[in-house]
Design a protein around this nucleic acid. Sequence first.
DNA 1: GTCTATAACGAGATAGAC
DNA 2: GTCTATCTCGTTATAGAC
Lengths: 258, 258
Amino acid sequence: MSAIRGARERARIEVTAAIKDEARKQLAAEGAAKLSLRAVARELGMVSSALYRYFPSRDELLTALIVEAYDSVGEAAEKARRTVARDGSAPAAHLARWVAVACAVRGWALARPHEYALIYGSPVPGYTAPQATIAPASRVGLVLIAVVEDAHREVGLALPPLAEELRPEAERLAAELAPGLPPAVAVPIVAAWSQLFGLVSFEIFGQFNRVVEARDSFFRHAVEELGRTVGLLGTAARGTLGAAGAANTESAAVRAQR
Amino acid sequence: MSAIRGARERARIEVTAAIKDEARKQLAAEGAAKLSLRAVARELGMVSSALYRYFPSRDELLTALIVEAYDSVGEAAEKARRTVARDGSAPAAHLARWVAVACAVRGWALARPHEYALIYGSPVPGYTAPQATIAPASRVGLVLIAVVEDAHREVGLALPPLAEELRPEAERLAAELAPGLPPAVAVPIVAAWSQLFGLVSFEIFGQFNRVVEARDSFFRHAVEELGRTVGLLGTAARGTLGAAGAANTESAAVRAQR
DNA sequence: GTCTATAACGAGATAGAC
DNA sequence: GTCTATCTCGTTATAGAC
């Protein structure tokens, strides 16, 4: 009995995976807007009505693809944070981790551009994301926050001051997303989060064609500077911000500690 | 005869405009992937074959929409640069112009989100952008460069040093895009260009839902910081970067002057 | 209970004959 | 330009296999 159920469940999981794989192929070929249950079924040698045992609607299939894409890129980011620069707790090590997370996101996007477009590109017409996508969608952002939290705990942050008018927003953001961080850094982190995806999107979507050529080092350099905008410090020898931060961040740092 | 031709040409222009307007409506409703000449024709009370007298193919219609969108946002950016802060040549005035250009881009995107998605969102499956889109696509970037060029000429730039490995890329970028600027600033400008659209895309595409609430001031603040990364200076009283830049940018500035 | 297959609806796209 | 016959699509109801 349990063996039977086990076999059934395994079969169900396999068919579900096959459906999603085929759907991803169609995503690449035709785009999310034209994803069709019938075409997926046809390609799998099934009948379209049979798919409804696995996904109650086309939109639910889309949701599954979206959630898996968010989870996949989120996992890549988490793995990069865990793996890279495990050894150091020096300021530069935290910046290296930040860069590693960003490079992992970019690498994932380059490897799976159509899934990237699904989650970070134009919204799919007629589709509204359900609650289930919210948590996976924030995983990459949470990794970035975690990197900054580590740095804040171990070596402190060098932050530019925050405009007064953004105080309430910063307090709210920090309370919701990063209770362990000073509110002033919440705004730069959210900004850097979106700017990181600006860099990736421009590369993936072709905006850098005929413009940027040395893309690896360009990206690496840009996200390193992004890391500085959230208060991460590079080696003192290298950065204006690093040197300047050390010299005049007393006020900002004091303020960042609240 | 010339009157007749004038009338004909006027009619042709009007019909062409009507086609594009209707196509834009469909863009909003169904997305670029599903833009269909037939549906446009139906809505206009024409027959699909008649449209081919105005646009030789669906892709050419798409190209026209893309070019007009790029031109429209580029014009908004150019107008913002011309109009705003005309009075000042102080460092803060240049930063204000930078912010104004960014806000113009964002305002345009908020007003025409579907056209924004057409040009800065996921590529349309099966469509490859022809040469004709390249120049319009670079207009916003050129405006940003112009703002920085003005600042460089009038008050100088405060730049962080550039990684050695990016030297060749920076020289090439500067030679192609901004002959009037020191190469070191070319890389930050291109980065800021893409990051600006990261901010806008996250707002337009819904990534900021349930995250950022005070969006106007958040954006304003973020692009002001972005302006600093390309060497624009704020008021000395306000920014860490401003004060720090004044103090220790001798080396960077010397270097930026080559 | 779990799944697949058949058939159908209403809507829209498409190709070709006229 | 018009009309029609033939495709596609998402979705459901129903019947039958395991």
